[in-house]
């Protein structure tokens, strides 16, 4: 991949920028009961690579993204695993050290740009403030940097945007400002949690195009969380699919989308509009859905977590836990169908 070449730092194989191993997260409910919302999550992300995280809501993909940068809510806690980034384990860093990584070497952007900006600060100042905190440049330099960054994310009138308050900007403009905040210190990694989900289709396409362009220019690695198969397929290099707190399948984007191994991935792809059955108008067949609903994190099924909804389940699926095993080209799948 060309983006690798731009950043080929050392000899040998492409260096893993981010290495997540056996990451597990528990949430504590109001009554003190614990729910294991993420389990045994392992993946690598190379310098300049884009990894997509696909799945339904509640599957644990946002939790995964938040846990990597230590941004879990107060009732969430990492119970196991390792997140090594630039050779350091982010899970073992102090808050102060973590704050130096966040925004500088790795940034995260969220689903709702409307509420991701400080309503009482000018857009430009919010971008400049990130630079100020990490670089400790004089204020003037920070403003210049911020202005340059605003131009880079596609604002022609960077002066006008600089002085605008968030409520004066549109949803797409706000997301651009947030992206400028995230990238003003030129981090190596951008984690994006459904950054386009709340935007209309046109704006969504613009933001995706912008991210694609910035990735190229800045040699950015991305962890891109989405439920949108088509969007991910058009943007990412590799993909992981999450269901009920586990990574059920991983592989190159084409392998996952065109030759899915796991029954869940197949079901998910079947539900994409414009797939097997086209159109949803009257008289047309309804959009297919996966039968049943995702299980409750406090009571996971004992065997395979997809077993209750799986069209291809075997006798043993309800009792035996599947382990991830190699599948396709450098991919994995967590399913007993592939057990020998």
């Amino acid at each position: 991949m060309s983006s690798h070449a731009a950043c080929g730092a050392r000899e040998g194989e492409p260096e893993a920028l981010l290495q997540v191993r056996d990451l597990a997260v528990h949430y504590v409910g109001a009554g003190g009961e614990e729910a294991a919302v993420l389990e045994e999550a392992s993946f690598d992300l190379a310098v300049g690579e884009t990894l997509g995280v696909l799945g339904e809501s509640g599957g644990g993909k946002s939790t995964l993204a938040l846990a990597v940068l230590g941004l879990l809510p107060p009732n969430g806690r990492v119970t196991a695993g390792r997140v090594s980034f630039h050779g350091r384990d982010l899970l073992r860093l102090s808050r102060r050290d973590l704050d130096q990584v966040r925004g500088d070497e790795a940034s995260m952007i969220f689903q709702e740009p409307g509420v991701s900006l400080n309503p009482c600060m000018r857009a430009g100042d919010q971008v400049a403030d990130v630079a100020r905190v990490h670089r400790r440049w004089p204020a003037k330099r920070c403003r210049e940097e911020a202005r340059a960054m605003l131009e880079l994310v596609g604002f022609d009138d960077s002066d006008g945007v600089f002085g605008a308050y968030p409520h004066q900007l549109s949803g797409g403009q706000k997301q651009r400002v947030v992206i400028a905040q995230a990238l003003v210190c030129r981090p190596a990694l951008l984690i994006a949690d459904e950054p386009t989900a709340s935007l209309d289709a046109t704006t969504q396409a613009e933001i995706v195009a912008l991210l694609r362009d910035l990735r190229q220019r800045l040699g950015l690695a991305m962890l891109f969380v989405s439920h949108d198969v088509a969007l991910l397929h058009s943007l990412v290099d590799r993909m992981i699919v999450m269901y009920a707190g586990q990574i059920v399948e991983s592989g190159s984007r084409d392998q996952v989308v065109l030759k899915p191994s796991h029954p869940y991935t197949r079901e998910l792809l079947r539900c994409v509009p414009g797939g097997a059955e086209k159109g949803v108008g009257p008289g047309r067949p309804r959009l297919p859905t996966i039968l049943g609903s995702p299980p409750d994190p406090a009571r996971w099924p004992p065997g395979c977590r997809f077993e209750p909804r799986c069209p291809d389940r075997l006798e043993s699926c309800g009792a035996r836990r599947p382990e991830p095993r190699p599948a396709g080209d450098a991919g994995t799948v967590r399913c007993l169908l592939y057990d020998d």
Binding site: D99, D104, V133
Partner: peptide, 22 residues
């Protein structure tokens, strides 16, 4: 509890600045 503080935290704004400036 507002999300913009989570976002700012994700950009490494230190706690005291988060509290008083944001």
């Amino acid at each position: 509890r507002s999300p913009f503080l989570l976002s700012a935290r994700g950009f490494g704004i230190p706690p005291r600045r988060l509290l008083f400036r944001y």
